[in-house]
Design a protein around this nucleic acid. Sequence first.
DNA 1: AATGAATGAGCTTTCATTCAT
DNA 2: CATGAATGAAAGCTCATTCAT
Lengths: 201, 201, 201, 201
Amino acid sequence: MSTPRTQSRDHEREASAEKRAAILAAALELFAERGFHGTAVPLVAEKAKVGAGTIYRYFDSKEALVNAVYQNEKRQMLDALLAEFPFDKPHREQFRVFFLRMAAYAKKQPLSVRFMELHHHQAYLDDASRHLEEHGNTMIEAAIHSGIQAEALKDLPVQTLIAVVWGVFLGVLRGWSEGRLELNDKTLIPIEQCLWEAIRR
Amino acid sequence: MSTPRTQSRDHEREASAEKRAAILAAALELFAERGFHGTAVPLVAEKAKVGAGTIYRYFDSKEALVNAVYQNEKRQMLDALLAEFPFDKPHREQFRVFFLRMAAYAKKQPLSVRFMELHHHQAYLDDASRHLEEHGNTMIEAAIHSGIQAEALKDLPVQTLIAVVWGVFLGVLRGWSEGRLELNDKTLIPIEQCLWEAIRR
Amino acid sequence: MSTPRTQSRDHEREASAEKRAAILAAALELFAERGFHGTAVPLVAEKAKVGAGTIYRYFDSKEALVNAVYQNEKRQMLDALLAEFPFDKPHREQFRVFFLRMAAYAKKQPLSVRFMELHHHQAYLDDASRHLEEHGNTMIEAAIHSGIQAEALKDLPVQTLIAVVWGVFLGVLRGWSEGRLELNDKTLIPIEQCLWEAIRR
Amino acid sequence: MSTPRTQSRDHEREASAEKRAAILAAALELFAERGFHGTAVPLVAEKAKVGAGTIYRYFDSKEALVNAVYQNEKRQMLDALLAEFPFDKPHREQFRVFFLRMAAYAKKQPLSVRFMELHHHQAYLDDASRHLEEHGNTMIEAAIHSGIQAEALKDLPVQTLIAVVWGVFLGVLRGWSEGRLELNDKTLIPIEQCLWEAIRR
DNA sequence: AATGAATGAGCTTTCATTCAT
DNA sequence: CATGAATGAAAGCTCATTCAT
């Protein structure tokens, strides 16, 4: 139970969190569509339905904002891909889960993927963003390494296998975002199948 | 033989062409690294070692410049990929040539590929750029379609096969540009091999 | 009675209106002295004691600003000339009132007249400015037409009489603005008299 | 008779004079239409069919050019008005000649009049232009003064009479240039008549 | 002498950021 | 805290002037 005073504080904190989230959502959408330099801060404010100055209460600068978005999305994507991942299942099964989770995430959060692609390795990303990127890479490298060790995957450099898998995934996404490809079981299952055949031992 | 007057004209035309090329080269490099909105015209001028106003003698606007670069690079890439293409050879051979030509082009002109990826489908590209893009796509679609007809490639939608092949290519390129992967016969041949296995009938 | 919140809003609106007026006043003065193309926007900003960017919060462009000034001044002049005009008095009296009002307006707002002369029929004036100009002309044409109908004025084309009256007025104004002529009863009454004699039946 | 060498020099001098005249004519037209600051020097060069740099062989700067045009036109107008002026004729006759010469000049050289009006008393006019202006004024003042002395004109300040006459003239011109008035005997003779009545004793 | 390509200062305009309310 | 008007640095672009040819 909380006192009235505390309740009020809770409301404030909640309202504040909502405002922050609205800014992040507006920024994600605009940065994904128009890029970092192509997006004016007042436009983000308008889309988030807050004052322009308010953004600077939550983020130090435009750069801080784009980094907050980047880290937010990266974390969400890693969660979506890796939460309760069935590391104990056969590698064939692990790969299917991984691929379908990626596809599901991309379908649900297309702006997130577009944003991360567009801002990948850009000069205004800070150390925290880079470290998170690195962290995601490391997780996936580990999984692939284990697949090679278990003689389930081809004995190629880990980076090569990542390039192939991630490349196909992005290629499919682009085809989808440009309307040249659908993203459903009928299209995804053959792709997943032929990709597995490309990398399996 | 040419009169002094004609010689002078030739020199002028040559100098002018060189200056135009210097601007295009500087723009390619900066746009590829920093994006369209992130690149100031005076910066392009400085890198091209010309005055800021000079750029506007050769290109109507910053948008016209980015489109000139786009079309320039796209044409070069299509030439590099498709010139004297061995359409009469077996499909296995055709694919190898295509893949290795792509890799060679990317290795020789990494900025070109980076530039085209970053500016792909952006709002400031004009009709000429879009048509060239379209043209390239059509060429590649036709080649893949013929491979399917000849029962050399899997009977999947053309767009799916493109997504897979192009995706792997970009994935490998990214790995290379981030220093995680080398781009030589030792790395490329296995990738080409496993990609062919992914798409062959 | 107003709440503090309302008071604050009132202050803001007032300050905003003052700033807009300051910009218009500065623009009037500079455009009247140096012409449209001869006046740099930052100069207007400096004279209005606002930042250069502020002008663009109030006006879409330099052209929009010059049109706002034009319409502002034209309206003020028409008000000064025509408000509660004694259309029921004898034509001799009407003319005297008209002439003296023109002179009084010019003496009080010399920049206004200079501005309107210098920007008369220029390419950057928009439809609203042109319509207002047209409207003023129509009012004056009607008054003169009625004078001719009533056989008070010479039976000459309306445009001829306007050319004569307006021409003398501008001629006197120029003499005054160049310091060759004073603008008081002693000089104006004979001019008004001799102008009346020129146009009366 | 002249040697071939001298003939060649003559041709050069003639070509040079023609080029200078072409520049002055182009500048007159453009300055009259678009104002000083609204006219780009390369545009003048194009209209004069000379290179941009050539203008600077004949005139030190854009300001020098506008002053050359001003003095050129002013002198031509004074010549047209005052050459062989019938000072010995009756004042009524003198006035008629003066008025009709003004009208004829304006009809033949409308750009000249428009140019002089638009650039009248502008900051970039130099001392020579101002002196020439002054000189023209003095000539006309003298003629009017003599008319007053001879009791032909009203005993009003010279400047007042000038303002009236010149004002009517400009008013008529404006009506003509805006297409509201024609400039022929039928319109001019009544105007001349009523203007004379306005200023005669 | 004539040219026009090249220049960079200065134009109009935008926008990340601040701060009085 | 939240706001949005105000700012001025810097953007894209123009043009008076120069100078190699």
